[in-house]
């Protein structure tokens, strides 16, 4: 398998990372090297094996439905790039 420049552009777009023309080529070659390493996986027959998502086969603990968190807006927004009237500001979103 090998990634095309279009694949690189598509995933960069999905990941919201701007890549310029030269970078596309560099990423393409590096990613293809890495996929060369990854492809070794395909040789193994894993039929019937349950995928392992977590390090332990345990079940989720549930939290009691109680309000525990105070308002810390000022502390949180002290590190925000742009706020006004308690809102985070971003470039205009068109729905």
């Amino acid at each position: 398998m090998s990634l095309s420049p279009q694949d690189v552009e598509r995933i960069a777009k999905l990941a919201r990372i701007r890549v310029n023309g030269d970078e596309v080529m560099a990423y393409q070659s590096q990613l293809n090297n890495i996929f060369g390493l990854i492809e070794a996986m395909q040789a193994v027959d894993t039929a019937g094996i349950a995928p392992m998502s977590h390090a332990q086969d345990l079940f989720q603990r549930l939290r009691p439905d109680v309000v525990t968190e105070p308002n810390r807006r000022d502390a949180f927004q002290a590190v925000a790039p742009q706020t006004e009237n308690g809102l985070y500001l971003v470039p205009k979103v068109i729905e």
Binding site: R16, I17, R18, F76, V79, A80, P81, Q82, Y88, V90, P91, K92, V93
Partner: peptide, 18 residues
């Protein structure tokens, strides 16, 4: 959006993200 670095110059939202 909420913390950390934001690029100094950007146009629309996607431009800001990317």
């Amino acid at each position: 959006v909420r913390y950390g670095y934001r690029t100094p110059e950007y146009g629309d939202l996607t431009d800001m993200y990317e």
